[in-house]
Amino acid sequence: MSDAISFEMPWARTHQFDPPSIFDSLREKHPLARMVYPDGHVGWIATSHEVVRKVLGDPRFSHSSEIGHFPVTHQGDIVPNHPKIPGMFIHMDPPDHTRYRRLLTGEFTVRRANQLKSRVEAVAAEQINDMREHGAPVDLVASFAKPLVLRVLSELVGLPYSERDEYADAPALLHDPNSDPQDVAAAYERAGSFFTEIVERKRKQPGDDLLSRLIADGQLTTEELSNIVVLLLFAGYETTESVLSVSVFALLHHVDQLTAVRVDPSKLNAAVEELLRYLTVNQYHTYRTALEDIELNGELVAKGDTVTVSLPAANRDPARFECPEKLNVDRDTTGHVAFGYGIHQCLGQNLARVELRAGLSALLRAFPDLRLAVAFDEVPLRLNGSVFAVRSLPVSW
């Protein structure tokens, strides 16, 4: 493709559930297309399922923050390259990435997530009770999705939920492109300082939590520990609560699919995977940089070129999923990339699945007549952030 598209063109989601239509034309004609990044770098954007998985699975592509070109601006400013941040392994390559991730893998296995299932279900039940006490209508985001996910994540990591005012606002501000940059910086600094304080508390009084176990292991500094907490919170909170909230919104709109799950609760697991594929809330921050010249999809990706991969576009690829524009809880979703792919695939995906299943199951059982309290088009959306979300979801029963 001779003419490179602007990075701004693909990002304007205009529909409640569908990715921007430009992805469809790109995927059909140029699944690997030239794209101009905010800093002027001319790299690429991948939109087909096949090409996206190739990029994410190829060790010749780096995720290092030291060499990559960010595909978006942050509060209007270009995101510069920066040195590795100790503990922030999401933007590291092996062996550094391998070292950090290995320390955490045991905390997020399928077995560990299943061990947490009863606690997640208990928290969901408590939030349901809060909704009942409040009475309809109620904002499902604020009263159910956010507290469910934050309570579970805080307990797992070792953060005191009673002190959530110190850290809960930071992820939402960071992911919202309309946030004031000064507010974002202040919230981020406040959360980081609080996490450092929590590390010191745990050194003196360890508990049964991830942070205490990492401290006992003795391999990480206070800075590394604090940054790992930042990473886990910023990667695992806003994303999961957004999927949960938008999933409820989608099911209330697609009544036939909601009915199918109500009639046969055994479909819930498949429904969660289909909602992850169909919604794909992680919109456009996934990118990699070529460490050498690489031939890809008939194009030469030169050393130093950055490739942005569109997870929403890959999950709507008709070459991989039949009628991908339709929500179908009976489809085979094997291979969806809602959690990414390759060595950087979401560490907390097993916990996220448990939270989504428990949350949706609790809501469907408790409220057989759950419905929107406003018109479908009146639900306030965040369409252009790094994470697609509903700002609030007023519901009644």
Rank of each mutant, 00 (worst) to 15 (best):
S310Q: 04
A338G: 15
S242N: 12
D176K: 00
N297K: 04
A313K: 06
P324I: 09
G236F: 07
K303T: 09
A145K: 04
H134D: 04
V329D: 04
R102N: 14
L268A: 03
Y188S: 14
E200R: 14
L296W: 01
K204S: 14
A352P: 00
P160S: 00
E166K: 14
T308N: 10
V149C: 05
D264Y: 09
R288Y: 01
G335M: 13
R371N: 12
S392A: 10
A235V: 03
R13T: 07
V354G: 06
V379W: 02
F339Y: 09
P20F: 06
G135M: 15
L360S: 11
I294L: 05
R34F: 11
K202C: 04
G76S: 07
A216I: 07
T306Q: 04
D96C: 06
A191P: 01
N282R: 03
P94S: 00
K117T: 14
V248M: 12
I45V: 15
P171G: 12
K146G: 07
D293P: 12
R353A: 05
D305V: 11
H15A: 12
R102V: 10
I343K: 11
A313P: 07
E107M: 07
F376P: 06
E133H: 14
S6Q: 05
P83F: 05
E197Y: 13
D330A: 14
A389N: 06
G158D: 02
P312Y: 10
S193F: 07
D130E: 13
L381V: 14
A4Q: 09
A302D: 07
A113R: 09
E155K: 06
Y284R: 14
F234D: 08
V337M: 06
D317F: 07
T196Y: 14
L252P: 11
K54S: 13
L251Y: 02
G76N: 05
T47P: 09
F249P: 02
L393C: 04
D96L: 03
A260L: 15
V120A: 08
P20A: 15
L116N: 05
A145M: 07
E325N: 09
R371S: 11
D39R: 00
V141N: 07
E299Q: 08
P71K: 02
G68V: 01
I22M: 04
G158P: 09
V184G: 03
K29T: 15
L210V: 02
E8K: 03
R132C: 09
E28Q: 15
S310L: 01
V395H: 03
S396L: 13
L356D: 06
S361C: 12
T221C: 13
V229D: 01
D305Y: 11
A124I: 09
I78G: 01
T240M: 15
H285P: 08
V309N: 01
K202T: 02
H41I: 08
V374Q: 07
S118C: 15
L327D: 09
S212A: 05
N269H: 10
R277V: 03
V261P: 01
S247C: 03
T334G: 14
A260Y: 02
D208F: 03
G40K: 00
E155F: 00
C346M: 10
A235I: 07
D208G: 04
F17G: 10
T334W: 15
L211E: 00
E28F: 03
S193Q: 06
T14S: 15
S226P: 13
Q205M: 11
